[in-house]
C-alpha cells in the first residue's frame, strides 16, 4: 500500500472537513467505510490516497420503515439490511439482491454507502500492471476494448470505457426508484440513485456526481415500491460468491392475467445500474404469457453494443428478464 495518514474523526462534520472525494479514483483524500473494497484496492496500489478518512461510527446505521417508505442509514451493513424483517417482508427485492452478493463475511463488514460506491471489477482496472485504463489513469487508453471483455458492459459504454458497475444492491434499488441522501459542507441534498453514477463518456475516472467532501448519509426507497411481486435473478459463473454475468431486478403488479405495471433493471450489463423504461412500458398491460414477455424483453437490446466476448449478454439479458418476470408473477 502507498503510505497514508489515517484520520478517525469523532463526528460527521469533522469527517466532512477533510474534503475527501468519493467519486473519483485519483483523489488525494478518500473515505473508508467497511473497507471491503477500499482495502483491496489499496493493497493492489490501484488507489493511492495520501489521507484516508474513516467513516466508522460517524454515520447513521439505522433501518427505518414508515409511511414515507424505507430509509437505510449509510453505515447499515449488507447483512443487517438483508435480514431486517421489514425489508424481507416489504422490499424482498433488496434482501434478495444482498443475499446474492459477496459472502457472509463481506456482508457483515460492508456498508450501504460503500456498496453503491464500490469500484468496477474490470480486471484491467484492478491490476496496475496494465498501463491502459482510462478509469485508473485518465488518458491511458482502455485495455478491455481489444482484450478479455467477456465481463464488460453492453449498455452505456463509450470508446473510453466499457466497465460494468458491479453492485447488485444498486440494481434492485434503481428498480424501486430509490434516492440517496447526501451531506456536504454546503448542506444536504437528495439525488435519485439513477443520477448518482455518471456514464463513462470521455471521463470514466469521474464516477459519480458527488462533490469534494460529500458523503452519502442514507438511502431512501418510496413507499409505493413496497409489496410488489418481485424477483432478483442473478446469472453467474458459479452458484454462489460471484459477481453477476447478467442480473435482472423485476417488480410487478398484476391485474388478473395481465401485468398492470412493471419495473425492470439490469446488472452486469451496464456501466451504471440500468433501468429499462422501454421494456417496462411494453410490459404494462401485457398478457402474462411467454410470447408477450419475450416480445417486451426484446426491447432491452435497443442501444446495446457488444465488444466481442460479451456479445452473448445481449441475448442472455432478455432471457433473464423473461425468467425474472415469470418467477415474480408466480409469487403469491
Amino acid at each position: 500500500m502507498h503510505p497514508f495518514v489515517l484520520e478517525r474523526p469523532r463526528d460527521l462534520s469533522a469527517a466532512l472537513s477533510f474534503g475527501a472525494q468519493a467519486g473519483r479514483n485519483d483523489a488525494p483524500v478518500e473515505y473508508i467505510a467497511g473497507g471491503t473494497d477500499m482495502v483491496q484496492l489499496l493493497q493492489e496500489y490501484v488507489r493511492r490516497p495520501d489521507r484516508l478518512v474513516s467513516l466508522a461510527g460517524v454515520l447513521d446505521d439505522g433501518i427505518e420503515i414508515g409511511s414515507q417508505g424505507l430509509r437505510l442509514g449509510a453505515a447499515a451493513t449488507m447483512a443487517e439490511v438483508a435480514t431486517h424483517q421489514a425489508v424481507v417482508e416489504r422490499f424482498p427485492l433488496i434482501s434478495q439482491a444482498l443475499l446474492n452478493s459477496a459472502s457472509p463475511q463481506v456482508r457483515n463488514q460492508a456498508t450501504m454507502g460503500g456498496n453503491l460506491l464500490q469500484r468496477t471489477r474490470c480486471p484491467y482496472f484492478r491490476d496496475v500492471g496494465y498501463e491502459a485504463c482510462n478509469k485508473r489513469a485518465p488518458g491511458s487508453g482502455c485495455a478491455a476494448l481489444d482484450g478479455e471483455n467477456r465481463w464488460h458492459a453492453v449498455l452505456g459504454t463509450s470508446d473510453d470505457c466499457i466497465a460494468v458497475h458491479p453492485s447488485d444492491l444498486a440494481v434492485a434499488l434503481v428498480a424501486l426508484d430509490a434516492s440517496v441522501e447526501i451531506r456536504g459542507a454546503g448542506g444536504d441534498r437528495s439525488v435519485p440513485l439513477s443520477d448518482l453514477h455518471r456514464l463513462p463518456r470521455d471521463t470514466p475516472h469521474l464516477e459519480t456526481v458527488l462533490e469534494p467532501g460529500e458523503v452519502i448519509t442514507a438511502i431512501t426507497v418510496p413507499a409505493n415500491a413496497a409489496g410488489l411481486r418481485s424477483h432478483y435473478l442473478k446469472v453467474r459463473d458459479r452458484a454462489s460468491f460471484e459477481f453477476a454475468v447478467v442480473a435482472a431486478a423485476v417488480a410487478i403488479e398484476m391485474d388478473g392475467a395481465r401485468i398492470r405495471q412493471a419495473r425492470v433493471a439490469l446488472g452486469g450489463v451496464g456501466t451504471k445500474p440500468w433501468r429499462l423504461p422501454n421494456v417496462e412500458a411494453a410490459l404494462a398491460g401485457a398478457e402474462f404469457e411467454p410470447a408477450a414477455l419475450r416480445q417486451a424483453a426484446a426491447l432491452a437490446a435497443e442501444g446495446t453494443q457488444g465488444r466481442g466476448h460479451n456479445d452473448f449478454k445481449i441475448e442472455l439479458m432478455q432471457r433473464a428478464i423473461v425468467r425474472a418476470v415469470e418467477i415474480a408473477g408466480a409469487r403469491a
Binding site: 489515517l6 478517525r8 473508508i32 467497511g34 473497507g35 471491503t36 482495502v39 483491496q40 474513516s54 466508522a56 447483512a79 457472509p104 463475511q105 463481506v106 457483515n108 463488514q109
Partner: peptide, 19 residues
C-alpha cells in the same frame, strides 16, 4: 483469514487493524 468481530465473522485481510 476469517475471524469473529463482536461475534460476527469477518475477513481480517479486508480490515485495517487501527479500525
Amino acid at each position: 483469514c476469517t475471524v469473529l468481530m463482536d461475534g460476527m465473522r469477518v475477513k481480517a485481510c479486508l480490515s485495517l487493524a487501527a479500525l
